[in-house]
Design a protein around this nucleic acid. Structure first.
Length: 234
DNA sequence: TACCAGGTCCTCG
DNA sequence: CGAGGACATGGT
C-alpha cells in the first residue's frame, strides 16, 4: 500500500467516519446522521455552504445557513430577488458578508441563465467541464468548485484546502500548488467519491485538532510518516 | 488582546 | 506566474 493510502487508513481508524457534508433538516444541523445532501434543496445548501465557508470557521457558516433557512432562502429564485443589503445582513455571521452575498447571487444567476435552475442538468456535465464552468463564476475558485463537485454533485475529485497543504508540506511532500497536490491524490488513490469525501474530511479534522499552526505532534496519529515531527524529535 | 478560521479577487512587479 | 492586500465575523 502506498503512503497516501496508509495515511488515510490511519486517520479513518483514529477519527472515524466524518459524515460529510453536514446539511440542515428542519432548521437544524444533524452532522452525526448526515451523509450528505439527499435532495435538490440540500444540494443547493451544500453549494451555498461551500461558498460561505471560504476562509471561515464552519461554526460561523452554520449560523449563516440556519439564518438562510429561517428566511426560506435556500432557493435560487429568492436569492436573486432579495436585496443585496438584506442578503448580506442575513449572512453576517459567515464573515465577508458583502462579498459572499454577491457570490451567492453570481452562482444563482449562472444556474438560471445556463441551466434554467436545473441542478441535475448542471451536474450531468463531465467533471472537467463542470469544474471549468464553476471556476468561471466570479467568487468560485478551484477549492470551492471542487467542493461543489465532490460534496454536492458527488463526483470524484479531490478537494485541496489549507489543511491539506499544511499537512502534506509538513509530512515532506514536494507538491506545493493546488494542481500538484490534487494530482498527487489522483495518482495514488482509486477514483472514488466516497474515498475522496472521507479523506478530505479527515484531513480537516486532523488540521483542526492536531496539525494546527502550532502542531501537537506528540498526539498525531500519523507522526511516524512526518518529516516535521522527526525533525523535532531528532 | 491578538490570532485564527474548510479562499478568492485584484493589482503590481 | 507569485506576492501582497482587501474582505469581516465569532471563538479562544
Amino acid at each position: 500500500m502506498n503512503k497516501i493510502m496508509k495515511i488515510y487508513k490511519t486517520l479513518l481508524s483514529q477519527f472515524g467516519s466524518q459524515h460529510w457534508w453536514p446539511v440542515t433538516e428542519k432548521g437544524k444541523f444533524h452532522p452525526e446522521y448526515s451523509n450528505g445532501p439527499q435532495n435538490e434543496k440540500q444540494k443547493l445548501e451544500v453549494i451555498f455552504g461551500a461558498i460561505l465557508t471560504q476562509n471561515t470557521n464552519w461554526n460561523n457558516v452554520e449560523k449563516a445557513i440556519v439564518r438562510l433557512n429561517k428566511h426560506d432562502l435556500i432557493d435560487g429564485k429568492k436569492i436573486l430577488n432579495i436585496d443585496d443589503k438584506k442578503l448580506a445582513e442575513i449572512i453576517i455571521p459567515s464573515g465577508y458578508h458583502n462579498q459572499k452575498a454577491k457570490k451567492l447571487k453570481n452562482f444563482c444567476e449562472f444556474l438560471l441563465k445556463k441551466y434554467d435552475w436545473d441542478l441535475s442538468l448542471l451536474f450531468k456535465n463531465n467533471i472537467y467541464e463542470l469544474r471549468k464552468q464553476l471556476i468561471d463564476i466570479n467568487g468560485i475558485g478551484p477549492e470551492t468548485a471542487d467542493s461543489i463537485i465532490l460534496y454536492a454533485a458527488k463526483q470524484p475529485i479531490f478537494v485541496v484546502d489549507a489543511y491539506t497543504k499544511r499537512v502534506f508540506d509538513r509530512i515532506g511532500f514536494k507538491e506545493k500548488t493546488y494542481d500538484e497536490l490534487q494530482e498527487l491524490f489522483n495518482k495514488n488513490l482509486a477514483k472514488s467519491e466516497k474515498l475522496f469525501n472521507e479523506y478530505h474530511a479527515l484531513l480537516v479534522e486532523l488540521g483542526k485538532s492536531i496539525c494546527k499552526k502550532v502542531p501537537l505532534c506528540e498526539k498525531c496519529p500519523i507522526n511516524n510518516h512526518c518529516n516535521y515531527y522527526r525533525k523535532e524529535v531528532a
